[in-house]
Design a protein around this nucleic acid. Structure first.
Length: 217
DNA sequence: AAGCTAAGCAACCGCCGCTAT
DNA sequence: GATAGCGGCGGTTGCTTAGCT
């Protein structure tokens, strides 16, 4: 008879957090399945890893992205596309999830600005009055760029496909869109210094109250 | 004050690649 | 070499909070 252990799902409780931290300190942050079992947490190894990597790891930075970080994300994303973990490794204290979430929000905003622009100022759109691109498609285009490094091969393939596909509607390349975004960013650049000096990192109560120094020693 | 919408964040899912057996 | 198990990654979803009407 197989005993199916009922796994807990959803938000983590403070007790679970403390328990996980304790066992990670004890056994390290590698063997997640083992950790999940030995800790007695009714969570999967994956869930434990995710909780640690995205929340409990004391090396994580909390709070809003700094302008420097934002620029770095933009730069690296234009280079690597949606390789979130790779980007995250270059930005200390930020997780792939952080960056992914940031990008999603950021791109949603940009897509909206872009949409406004195209409705207010048709010149941007190279006068394509009956553009059949829906908002969702626009949003996805903004969100899901391949990155320069990774997409070059794809772009070549796509170019070939377009030729084969014959007549296709006018769609703006990501290069065009990115140029536009970069222009926007540059125009905003002068404000960054002000934001940077006034912006602090605001850890939540857990981080304030928890004695990490004694836990990790 | 209540309702609505957007933004932010945490967590899950499915897939893929690596590794041990 | 085949394969099962695990960790890691990217995509997506859903809940909470903040801001606006």
């Amino acid at each position: 008879m197989v005993q199916e252990e009922i796994m807990r799902r959803g938000p983590w409780t403070e007790e679970e957090d403390l328990q996980l931290v304790f066992y990670v300190k004890l056994f390290g942050d590698r063997r997640w399945d083992f950790l999940a079992k030995v800790s007695g947490l009714k969570r999967t190894g994956k869930s434990c890893r995710l909780r640690w990597v995205n929340y409990l790891n004391p090396d994580l930075k909390r709070g809003k992205m700094t302008p420097q970080e934002e620029r770095l994300v933009l730069e690296l994303h234009s280079k690597w596309g949606n390789r979130w973990s790779r980007i995250a490794r270059k930005i200390s204290g930020r997780t792939d999830n952080d960056i992914k979430n940031y990008w999603r929000t950021h791109m949603r905003k940009k897509a909206q600005e872009h949409r406004k622009k195209t409705t207010i100022s048709p010149s941007f759109s190279n006068s394509s009055p009956s553009s059949s691109i829906t908002y969702d498609e626009n949003e996805r285009n903004f969100y899901d760029t391949g990155g320069l490094e990774l997409s070059q091969a794809d772009e070549q393939k796509k170019a070939g496909n377009q030729e084969q596909g014959g007549e296709s509607m006018k769609v703006y390349s990501m290069d065009e869109i990115w140029k536009d975004i970069e222009l926007l960013e540059e125009n905003e650049e002068t404000n960054y210094g002000v934001y940077f000096t006034t912006m602090g990192l605001l850890p939540d109560s857990l981080w304030k109250d928890f004695d990490w120094s004694s836990t990790f020693r």
